[in-house]
């Protein structure tokens, strides 16, 4: 049994069928990239995984435990199983980089302490200690993405690449089982993509389990253990980077690569 098993996921919006039976699996510590042309349901797939969207049918299980469809008890948990890094960062503008990272940690800390009570001084003390611990941890996380000097800056004071790195630290803060990226560099100026990709590479070397939707094919090729090519709401082809890039089996995959290389040569002219 694989670590993550996705089985026959269906999703449609009104009349539009977006996911038409998506199944795949991945092991712990693997990096999986999803590629495919625009509008093929890559974002929708990620959103179904992390609970931002409800699939119409299918199952998702992690470590043998079904996380979708939820049975009420663990329905809240999906958010913490899958971390999410958005295309346009979605940082909280009113908080510093540090607070962006600690916010969710502190909410979790409060949850572990149970009900609030203004006279429960023990709880207050415990919360204070947990918060201090969270802050230390958040500083470490920000240092790991190379932002130790930006902890007290607000998102508006950071470049796009820096903002995305804060977003990565924020997602790591809850130690998700699987970290998902939805085109993490496509809102960035070309000269800023490198710093974000470097962080993702570093996470890979730490053995993080990651799913990356990306248009950066070179990057996908370098960083992935497995690549999924999506077309028309289904997985058209799956394989190692070598298999997919050097020896694509499906006609659609071939066409996709050919079109891209045409574009590249056009740009070169």
């Amino acid at each position: 049994m694989a670590f993550l098993e996705v089985n026959n996921l269906y999703k449609s919006f009104n009349e539009t069928e977006v996911l038409k039976g998506v199944s795949f699996e991945m092991e712990r510590g693997e990096v999986l990239s999803i590629i495919g042309s625009s509008g093929n349901g890559k974002t929708t797939l990620l959103r179904c995984l992390n609970g931002l969207e409800m699939a119409n049918a299918g199952t998702i299980s992690i470590d043998g435990e079904t996380v979708f469809p939820a049975d009420g008890k663990n329905s809240k948990q999906t958010g913490l199983t899958f971390g999410m890094v958005f295309q346009n960062f979605n940082l909280f503008p009113q908080y510093t980089a540090l607070r962006n990272v600690t916010l969710a940690m502190d909410v979790q800390a409060e949850k572990t302490l149970g009900k609030k009570n203004p006279f429960d001084f023990k709880r207050k003390q415990a919360l204070k200690e947990l918060r201090a611990k969270n802050e230390t941890e958040a500083r470490l996380l920000l240092a790991r993405v190379g932002l130790e000097n930006k902890v007290d800056n607000y998102p508006c004071e950071l470049s796009g690449g820096q903002q995305q790195r804060v977003a990565i630290a924020r997602a790591l803060a809850l130690s998700p089982d699987i970290l998902c990226f939805d085109e993490p560099t496509s809102a960035l100026d070309p000269e800023l993509t490198g710093e974000v990709l470097k962080v993702i590479k570093q996470l890979r070397s730490e053995g993080r389990t990651m799913i990356i939707v990306t248009h950066e094919l070179e990057f996908a090729r370098n960083v992935s253990d497995k690549i999924i090519f999506m077309a028309d709401g289904v997985i058209e082809e799956t394989g190692t980077p070598q298999e997919l890039f050097e020896n694509p089996k499906s006609e659609k995959t071939k066409a996709f690569f050919e079109k891209l290389s045409e574009k590249v040569t056009e740009n070169d002219d």
């Binding site: 992390n50 609970g51 931002l52 809240k76 958010g79 913490l80 899958f82 971390g83 999410m84 958005f86 346009n88 979605n90 940082l91 909280f92 916010l103 969710a104 909410v107 979790q108 924020r170 997602a171 809850l174």
Partner: peptide, 13 residues
């Protein structure tokens, strides 16, 4: 922006 709600949701709030 709806992204603010979504960011909160995936962070377990």
């Amino acid at each position: 922006p709806v992204g603010q709600y979504e960011a909160g949701q995936v962070l377990g709030l």
